[in-house]
Design a protein around this nucleic acid. Structure first.
Length: 670
DNA sequence: TTCTGGACGCCA
DNA sequence: GGCGTCCAGAAG
């Protein structure tokens, strides 16, 4: 190909392009300048995707801005091509991504990979550029928000475009999707955009349905999920970017949706661990949406049935105000919860399950299934919450009850899966001839009962009653209103039209026994989420010690007091979120080198490093890993992140030394 | 993947 | 001292 002068000519107007290259190396986490060839002058617009030659290689990047002159001393290369003139990186999202990267000691490139879906050329051609002449949206009626004393004022704030920020304690029951939809429609009616983030696809379906109903059909909204497929995902995302829709609902990744004129962010059930992004730099939806609302001057509605310590912290700091139902409304909506003591370990024994289930639990289930005609109750389905498979089927010595461990690697054994022989959850070795290391017995017993076993046992206790299970690969969204036992793992509870007639929460000991800082908070969250599905005043039985504060919080439906107390305790002990924590994971040498060389702020405190268990997913990752924790006051959080990022930059610049993983606010620091 | 600059070696 | 070659490191 012959290159005429046309190819060489540089754009006469703003000939320099600042480009963020798509390379996630800390020391390259800054813009690079390129010349804009005249032939690309029209298409090289701020926010578009470009290809540039970078150290010889062709790499993708985003054009951040066009400027007159470059500060760069050397001579500039030219943009190779404009991938598409679509300005996919809006100023708001660039600013947010940069802030999130800085907050989490990550790179802009990593955050942009989370924020902007891969391009799909066909979809780009198909999506309209013209915002449809969407009908005027009428401001909706407050509906069930009337049950919240501060509800009408909150909605008024949305209608007036004020940045009202609420820590929402949702009343139990099925109204929360409608309440989100009403808040969204109120904002949209005021001409502003809305981003709604929920933990999973089933919650999204509920919000989707509520939005459709509340906004009939004036307001378009889209749902953004990971499982849409590349074309549809990009199509919907583009519709948002081009301003064709004002309301976006989705799972985690939707937190970055480029909604125009953002007026409200909503986050449902902010304690759900699905809100934590598993890819670097591991941002959490609560943090991202709070940052986003703050920077955009948008309102925020964050909460759920439970209350996280982090949200309590936002309240304590004056960033958000509590938004809770009136005592009267709570009385009308809440179930009636009682605790049945977990009689020693009896309920953990598979064989003794039904025989030993506290009579209160069995009686409650029986009355709910048959309809307590005597006391004027209608019959209906009974929800039974059982531990998730992760904790299930741990097994112990049948004689001395020591936990059964793998002879090869020391990992925990489990029964189940494809074969009957116990196997190791870490290395997968089968333990056919297991003997107890302590007492040499060869007898095993189940320490925990799996959902399938529970279903079987309970079904036997109530002959003729259908048993439905939901969890793992088979998650039910809805069950019929007829009497049935519905066995579900936490997070997989189906809804029942009209609510469950009763609920049994059998996983108390498993939830509370976890070696985690958040064990109690998480147990309460899961209990409340299950109990919220029960009819008003319907019975709930939790197998746990009634005197525990966390159990009291469930019985009284008072997650806020519990959370405030939790936050106070963590403040006293110097645990997150009262302090900022970072973890540094890698080979022992890499971690030592990294922590030693990082110019940590003076007040940073280094804990460890200690060896960490091999990830269950990758049993034989060759080298042992160590983890150091770094703790610092919240006020120095940004300084810590900056120091960690700088240390990463030094490492990535001189290569070698092995990678370390830096994570801020790691979920489990137990 | 390409470019640059510094280290080194060979020759005058 | 000057020039060519090789390699590492940076990266517009």
């Amino acid at each position: 190909m012959v290159k005429g002068p046309k190819d060489q000519a540089v754009s006469e107007r703003l000939p320099v392009a600042r480009v963020a290259v798509d390379i996630s190396l800390a020391h390259l986490d800054r813009p690079f300048d390129y010349l804009v060839p005249a032939r690309l002058d029209e298409t090289a617009v701020p926010g578009c995707r470009v290809r540039v030659r970078f150290a010889g290689q062709l790499v993708d990047g985003y054009l951040l801005e066009r400027i007159e002159t470059s500060e760069h001393q050397g001579k500039l290369a030219r943009l190779e091509r404009v991938t598409s003139p679509e300005p996919v990186l809006t100023p708001e999202i660039f600013d947010l991504a940069r802030t999130v990267a800085d907050r989490y000691a990550g790179t802009l490139a990593d955050v942009l990979r989370l924020a902007i879906p891969p391009r799909h050329a066909t979809a780009e051609r198909e999506v309209s550029h013209e915002p449809e002449a969407s009908g005027k949206i009428a401001r909706p009626d407050p509906g069930s928000w009337a049950r919240y004393p501060a509800g009408p004022a909150f909605l008024a704030g949305l209608a007036e475009g004020r940045p009202v920020r609420a820590a929402w304690s949702a009343l139990p029951g099925p109204q929360w999707p409608a309440e989100i939809a009403i808040a969204a429609a109120t904002t949209a009616a005021a001409g502003r955009g809305v981003v709604i983030v929920v933990p999973d696809a089933r919650d999204l379906d509920r919000v989707d349905a509520a939005l459709t109903e509340v906004t009939q059909p004036a307001l378009g909204h889209v749902c953004l999920t990971a499982d849409l497929g590349p074309a549809e995902r990009y199509r919907r995302w583009l519709a948002v970017r081009r301003g064709l829709v004002r309301v976006v609902a989705g799972t985690r990744a939707a937190m970055f949706a480029p909604v125009a004129a953002l007026g409200l962010v909503v986050l449902w059930d902010d304690g759900d661990d699905l809100h934590a992004e598993p890819r670097a730099p591991y941002p959490n939806a609560r943090e991202v949406l709070a940052l986003r609302a703050h920077r955009a001057g948008a309102a925020a509605l964050i909460g759920g049935f439970a209350r996280t310590a982090e949200l309590s912290q936002l309240v304590a700091g004056g960033w958000a105000r509590p938004l809770a139902g009136s005592p009267e409304a709570l009385r009308q909506a809440a179930p009636r919860t009682r605790a049945a003591p977990d009689e020693a370990e009896l309920a953990r024994d598979a064989a003794a399950m039904t025989a030993r289930l506290p009579s209160l639990a069995l009686r409650t289930a029986r009355e709910a299934l048959t309809g307590g005609a005597r006391i004027g109750l209608a019959d209906g389905p009974v929800l039974v919450q059982v531990p998730r498979r992760g904790y299930l089927a741990a097994i112990a010595c049948g004689r001395c009850r020591a936990q059964a461990r793998c002879a090869a690697c020391g990992g925990p054994l489990e029964i189940g899966g494809s074969h009957e022989t116990p196997g190791c959850r870490w290395c997968g070795a089968l333990a056919a001839d297991w003997t107890c290391a302590r007492c040499h017995s060869g007898q095993l017993r189940a320490l925990v009962t799996g959902a399938a076993r529970t279903a079987e046992e309970l079904g036997r206790a109530f002959p003729g009653v259908p048993v439905r299970t939901s969890g793992g690969q088979h998650v039910l969204a809805v069950v019929p209103a007829e009497p049935a036992l519905v066995i579900a793992t936490p997070g997989a509870e189906p809804v029942a039209p009209g609510g469950y007639a009763a609920a049994l929460l059998l996983d108390g000991w498993a939830l509370l026994g976890r070696p985690s800082l958040r064990a109690a908070e998480e147990a309460l969250r899961r209990w409340l989420n299950a109990a919220a599905l029960v009819r008003p005043a319907g019975p709930v039985v939790v197998l746990a010690e009634a005197t525990l504060p966390v159990v009291q919080a469930l019985i009284r439906w008072d997650p806020v007091t519990f959370s405030e107390r939790e936050l106070a305790e963590r403040t006293e002990l110097g645990f997150p979120p009262a302090v900022r924590m970072a973890s540094v994971t890698g080979t022992p040498e890499a971690v030592a080198d990294f922590v030693g060389a990082a110019g940590l702020p003076a007040r940073a405190e280094v804990l460890g490093p200690v060896a960490v268990a091999t990830a269950p997913g990758r049993p034989d990752s060759a080298e042992t890993q160590e983890r150091a924790l770094i703790r610092i006051g919240r006020g120095d959080g940004l300084a810590l992140a900056r120091a960690l990022h700088a240390a990463q930059a030094t490492r990535s610049a001189r290569k070698g030394g092995g990678a370390v993983r830096v994570q801020l606010d790691p979920a489990e620091v137990a």
